[in-house]
Computed example of a mutant assay.
Amino acid sequence: MPSVPRDLRYTKDHEWLAIGDDVSVSGVTAVAAEALGDVVYLDLPAVGATLRAGEPCGEVESTKAVSDLYAPADGVVVEVNADVVADPGLVNTEPYGRGWLLRLRITGTPDLLDAQAYAALVGADVEEPR
C-alpha cells in the first residue's frame, strides 16, 4: 500500500489537492492509481471549465477499467497537465509529482480529508514530512 503525503488534502473518491494561495493542484492518489492498474488514457476538463466538488469532471481509463474523475473542489480549471495527457502512465509512476492532472482556481471552501483521515480510510500510512 502506498503511503499518503501529509501536506495534501484528499477526497473520499481518491483525488488529492494541494491548496495554494491562488491556484491549487489536483491529481489522483497513488492508492487509486495502484487499484486502477496501468493508466492508458485521460479525459480531462478543458481550461476554463467550471467544476463542482464531488461531480464527475473527466475519466481515467486503465487496462482494468474506466473510472470517473471527480472534482475535488468548486473551481475553474486554469491549466491541464499536457505531459500527463501525452503520457498517462505518469499517474502510476508519479501521482503526486509529474502525474498531476489539473490546476484550479478554487471558488468555494472544499470539504476534504486531511492525510490522517484519508490514510485511515484506505488503510495506508502517512508519509513523513519531506
Rank of each mutant, 00 (worst) to 15 (best):
Glu128Phe: 00
Asp68Tyr: 07
Asp68Ser: 08
Lys64Trp: 11
Ala33Ser: 15
Asp74Gly: 12
Leu42Cys: 03
Leu44Trp: 02
Gly123Arg: 14
Cys57Glu: 06
Ala18Trp: 07
Asp13Gly: 00
Asp68Lys: 06
Glu61Asp: 10
His14Asn: 08
Arg52Glu: 14
Arg105Pro: 03
Val4Gly: 14
Ala120Thr: 11
Val66Pro: 00
Val23Asp: 02
Gly37His: 09
Met1Trp: 04
Met1Thr: 15
Leu36Ile: 11
Arg105Ala: 09
Val122Ile: 09
Asp22Tyr: 03
Asp83Val: 01
Glu55Val: 01
Arg9Phe: 07
Val122Ser: 12
Ser67Val: 12
Trp100Pro: 00
Glu61Ala: 07
Asp21His: 10
His14Ile: 01
Val126Pro: 12
Thr50Lys: 14
Tyr118Pro: 14
Thr11Glu: 02
Met1Leu: 11
Pro88Val: 04
Ser3Asp: 13
Leu42Thr: 01
Asp83Gln: 09
Glu94Ala: 15
Val80Pro: 02
Val25Ala: 03
Val76Asp: 09
Val126Gly: 15
Gly27Leu: 13
Glu94His: 14
Val47Thr: 14
Pro56Ala: 08
Pro88Lys: 08
Leu69Phe: 00
Ser67His: 06
Asp7Val: 07
Tyr10Glu: 00
Leu51Trp: 09
Val4Leu: 07
Glu55Leu: 10
Gly27Trp: 08
Tyr41Arg: 13
Gly54Asp: 11
Val122Tyr: 02
Arg52Asn: 07
Trp100Leu: 06
Thr109Ile: 05
Pro95Lys: 00
Leu42Val: 02
Asp38Arg: 13
Glu127Ile: 11
Glu127Met: 14
Ser3Ile: 10
Asp125Phe: 10
Pro88Trp: 01
Glu94Gly: 09
Tyr41Gly: 03
Asp125Leu: 15
Gly89Glu: 12
Val47Gln: 13
Val126His: 11
Pro110Ile: 12
Asp21Tyr: 02
Gly58Lys: 04
Val122Lys: 14
Gly89Asp: 14
Ala120Cys: 03
Leu8Met: 11
Pro72Tyr: 08
Thr109Ala: 15
